[in-house]
């Protein structure tokens, strides 16, 4: 149970989904003028983004994005030196 993308071409860049989503699923790509379904695993399927999607870019899926219930999958590592956060907290990584 999750929001899903029906057709990214139909996204008109209104950012309704970005503003509305209570679970912070959506971000916005200013360069492409498209919303980004960044964290669908946190979708609570309230469907308000879908109802407010002007272009009809979104749909609701019967599938739910999730993480596997295993330690191996859950343990995640980031290439942090390449991330935008490295500069902000330079020197504090890898403690």
């Amino acid at each position: 149970m999750s929001v899903a993308r029906l057709d990214l071409n139909k996204c008109v860049g209104c950012q309704n989904c970005v503003n509305i989503c209570p679970m912070d699923v959506f971000y916005f790509d200013e360069n492409a003028n498209k919303s980004v379904m960044a964290f669908p695993e946190n979708c609570q399927s309230c469907a308000q983004c879908y109802l407010h999607c002007i272009g009809g870019s979104l749909t609701m899926s019967t599938l739910r994005a999730s993480y596997a219930m295993s330690g191996g999958r859950a343990l995640r590592t980031f290439p942090i030196e390449k991330s935008q956060y490295a500069q902000e907290t330079s020197g504090s990584w890898g403690k």
Partner: peptide, 14 residues
């Protein structure tokens, strides 16, 4: 049914 998803990458924090 479920669509093919072609998302841009998470653009990072605003």
């Amino acid at each position: 049914t479920d669509p093919i998803v072609t998302e841009f990458a998470f653009p990072g924090d605003t």
